[in-house]
Design a protein around this nucleic acid. Sequence first.
RNA 1: GGCGAGUUGGCGGAGUGGUUACGCAGCGGAUUGCAAAUCCGUGUACAGGAGUUCGAUUCUCCUACUCGCCUCCA
Length: 466
Amino acid sequence: MAIKLYNTKVRKKVDFEPIDPDNVRMYVCGPTVYDRAHLGNARPVIVFDTLFRLLRHTYGADHVTYVRNFTDVDDKINATALARQEAGADGTLEDLIAQRSDETIAWYLEDMAAVGAMEPTQMPRATQYIAQMIAMIEDLIAKGHAYAAEGHALFRVRSYTEYGALSGRSVDDMIAGARVEVAPYKEDPMDFVLWKPSSDDQPGWDSPWGRGRPGWHIECSAMALDLLGGAFDIHGGGNDLQFPHHENEIAQSTCAGHGFANVWMHNEMLQVEGKKMSKSLGNFFTVRDLLDQGVPGEVIRFVMLSTHYRKPMDWTEKKRVEAKIRLTQWFRATDGVTASKQVPKAVVVSLVNDLNTHGALSAMMSLEPSDLKAAMQLLGFPDAEDVDWFRHGIQMSSIADLPYTADAIAPLLSKWQYLRDEADYAAADELKRKIEACGLKLSVGAAGPNAEPTADFDPAKLEALL
RNA sequence: GGCGAGUUGGCGGAGUGGUUACGCAGCGGAUUGCAAAUCCGUGUACAGGAGUUCGAUUCUCCUACUCGCCUCCA
């Protein structure tokens, strides 16, 4: 089935035709590793992970290369390292910077794994590509698209006539907007930094322009070239990166003589209860915060996939609750079931249509268990057999296989059943009321009475009932 | 100020030039000692105005409103 993707570059959906079906190549802008990933950071990760899975499903698992970088050259990382040094931490500033990056990367991978994201094929770090960046800058200068000035290297925006095409802006309009940094060493206010000088307390590398560090944009161009070649298939990221980051990447790579990405994909932003997530509004939280609050990663993933990636996604408490209910039903339906070999067509049809994940989830509402399981696997949901919170709930509802409170619950449920069998409903209801006061919820299924713990479950109260 | 996206039933959220998803909630029913769960049934909504058309929620233009980006931020 042909995949259609919305290409920001041409502002419409296009049939996706890989340059090489045996090696489909995708680059996604990764995080700056200075702190825990917030919920908004998880959106592109989940979106492009889903695309990665779809591409693997379509072209074969070994025929897709997915590169996502780590930006580990950044002033916020430096600031943390410097603060630690001043607080008396051992090691050089370089060590402390590396330490901060390393721990942040470990957190990131842990949190993203929790929401079901596979690791990309390659995860290059900016600090490993300094030489390639310098080479590319030198090439741009040699070709007249960049220049050195006062320890900086700058991209000459006026030398690239297509500048602004991706984001639909013109250089003149932007200057009219007057929100550009004016600097004496710039030929034109729109020119952006490829390389900048470092002071002694900042990390730096030797370069033809003196000791310094790369600007933000050049790393993606250099890494993509090295790992994916001069032309590749898909470049993704949040739509806040469209300008200037992606515009600048295009300018750099194109002027260096490379084809760069054919398809540009941008996900919309995340909101929380209808508002932008921000520290000042007090609605800012990380993926780890949610996980620690007991929100399972697959619930986060479900909520993310329930809105199309090109629409703003509103994270709400209500959606979180509904997602968990839905997933519980699906896990219940697929527990112990063998997945179908083929993913149901209705699900694939939605996904290949510009990653209509909501449509896919909708189609999954009416599937047979084995088909549902196959679809869930394609979308990156774990198997029911591997989900701890789900297993725990099942265990609690099975009299034969209860955890530590089994001895307490079993006789109580037996007694309740006995009273009901005897039609002594007044006594049965009274007992039910007491048991439920302990935070258990009673129900009657085909196999007999069940007890499921609620959030208020208190084993101590249960012990007291005996 | 510049650029862009969006506005669908009570809510969430797809999609389509004519037959109008899906989920939640609601309502009716089955079942149930009562519940829960489950099952069946049930809802013609597409911001406003103008235009194109035999016909527009779907295309074009205008208006209103919302949101995002332009500044470290996915």
